[in-house]
Write a protein that binds this DNA or RNA. Structure first.
Lengths: 107, 107
DNA sequence: ATCATTGTTCGATAGTTATTGAACTATGGA
DNA sequence: TCCATAGTTCAATAACTATCGAACAATGAT
């Protein structure tokens, strides 16, 4: 993952609503959730949610698929994984003080 | 780390200049770097850098100490560690598909 | 005391992001 | 075909963010 993509992904997650949405989609698992279910769950207007989902999608953190009348959104686990890898390896230079899991693994 | 702090930290890192600055300070190690050395390295104006350092500091990702005429900035490894922990555990719900290091550890 | 160095703050400006409701598109059902 | 449902897009607005250079503080040297 390039730094520019990392910056986009970080920006996409750097918002209360969007980190909630992403977490919800992760918890929903591979089946994903229809946009309407997300907006019900988080109690927000369809158009605002649509805006935020577009941001997440543009950053590559979620994908969308039309199923019937619904747009089903899914978390893109791979993108999150690459983001965490970048933060750990490139940004933190592999420093174990930064990376809780590296510390855990070395115990 | 609270979600609101996580959002702040993500926002602080979600900028080309600031992720560079943070990486530079991580690589500089515990001694840190004077602001002037950072602006030399990244070739930017003092006032713009000062703005970005303030953002990082406000988000808790770096600390500053006056030493002589310099302000020495240091990466806050603990904050980064907490950020990665939040993303892995809370946001990703501990899903191994999200967390490269969890996968690595389980092999 | 005076001056140079090192950074920060301020005001102006430009650009970006978030929110709202109304209009619109696409799909499926009667 | 006509209607209801599910979402997206659009325009307007407000709020926030980034950049610049000039002015300002704080420190250290002469």
């Amino acid at each position: 993952m390039e730094q520019s993509e990392v910056v986009e992904a970080l920006g996409a997650l750097a918002h209360h609503t969007r980190i909630e949405v992403f977490g919800l989609l992760v918890r929903a698992g591979p089946e994903g959730l229809a946009a309407g279910l997300v907006s019900d769950e988080l109690d927000m207007s369809a158009s605002t949610l649509s805006f935020h989902l577009k941001e997440l999608k543009h950053a590559g953190l979620v994908s969308a698929e039309r199923i019937g009348r619904s747009q089903v959104y899914r978390a893109n686990y791979g993108a999150m994984s690459e983001l965490l890898t970048f933060l750990t390896d490139d940004c933190c230079n592999g420093a174990p003080e930064c990376a809780p899991l590296l510390r855990k693994a070395s115990r």
